[in-house]
Amino acid sequence: MNAIVLIARKEGGDLLLSLRGLGWLLTMAVVLSVFGLLLVGNTELSLLDNAQVVYDMGGIVTALGALLAVVVGTDSVAGERERGTLVPLLLTPTSRTSILLGKLGGQAIAWAAMYVLALPYFWAVGSTGQNLIDGAISVALLGSPVVLGFGFLAMGIGARLSSARSSLLTSLIFLLLSASPLLLGPSLRQSSVGRAFDAVNPFSGALNAYDAVIIDSQTIVAQFPHFAFTLVWLGLTLSFAVYSLNRVFK
């Protein structure tokens, strides 16, 4: 079997089959469940429009996916180095490119697992409203570059910093900062600082596209500028990860 696929399966399998990986997925599921239960248990939230709820769910799934990607990305490089398993991997007769692509594939599998896990929740909260399918598609299209970008960023940071703990902390701080539009109200985001931050934040790009598709019923095709923005983010973080990992391999 191709070395890239083997490594990707190993990385992804760690998430889907190991106790630790299942524990992460369970934590994500519990967060989504709590959000769902809040929606039906709180009078104020239960009156939210379906489209608004699907939009919120899209934002939460993207944030959780990015969080999972940061954890998996940090673990795949900095974690392996601390556990002493990175050097034996580099000593195997596998090209460095294959190892790199395999680890990137593991990131994609982790996000795919998270996305599949989120689909029933999308259905549960949004099946009676508008644009549910378009919303799920836009999370797949725009959320994937954002989430994978954070995974690559965490891999790159993990390759550069000396300890897994400091790598994780640095990546988490960056993620918290980027995901702040989820916490800020629309009025704060409309301020000049908020608009400037939105203009360079890939998370905001994805959220704005979700808003346009799910709430404003715009077409997914019309979100191409947002999509391109998230692809630029993916390209930059991928380059950072490749460059940083090559330094480790040397």
């Binding site: 769902g36 239960l37 709820v53």
Partner: peptide, 15 residues
């Protein structure tokens, strides 16, 4: 159209 509890509960508890 708002969230329907009979759809949320099985998913939120079942998964």
């Amino acid at each position: 159209p708002v969230v329907e509890s009979q759809r949320v509960l099985p998913v939120a508890v079942g998964i």
